[in-house]
């Protein structure tokens, strides 16, 4: 299996766990996907949302910031981050 497939499997598993409210497991999968592609802003965004949804706001902020560093045009990440900073 090549890296691309491995990444896709981790992403899909992550999304499955996320939808099932199993955030810890989702975070693990997204992190594993990032091990193969550390600068993928979409995976980082999914990781950030998982942190935020499970109330880990500090890590969520840090991860949204990473998304915006890689992709300054990422409007969703910006709006989530702004909301968190207002807290």
């Amino acid at each position: 299996m090549n890296d691309k497939d491995k990444i896709q499997i981790h992403i899909e598993k992550g999304k499955f766990y996320f939808s099932s409210k199993k955030y810890k497991e989702a975070i693990k999968e997204f992190k594993q996907a990032l091990e193969h592609d550390s600068e993928n802003s979409e995976i980082l965004y999914s990781l950030a949302v998982s942190y935020e949804t499970s109330s880990d706001y500090d890590l969520a902020k840090e991860t949204y910031q990473k998304v915006l560093f890689l992709d300054p045009e990422h409007e969703l990440a910006r709006s989530h981050l702004e909301k968190l900073l207002e807290r």
Partner: peptide, 30 residues
């Protein structure tokens, strides 16, 4: 926060407000 996968296959969440919560409402992570 209810997790969703949006039309772009992106993870996100929708916030639902339960007010007032019933006595038997269970707390969830997040």
């Amino acid at each position: 926060k209810n997790p969703i996968i949006d039309e772009n296959n992106q993870t996100d969440y929708e916030e639902k407000i339960i007010a007032p919560p019933k006595a038997e409402e269970k707390f969830e992570t997040g």
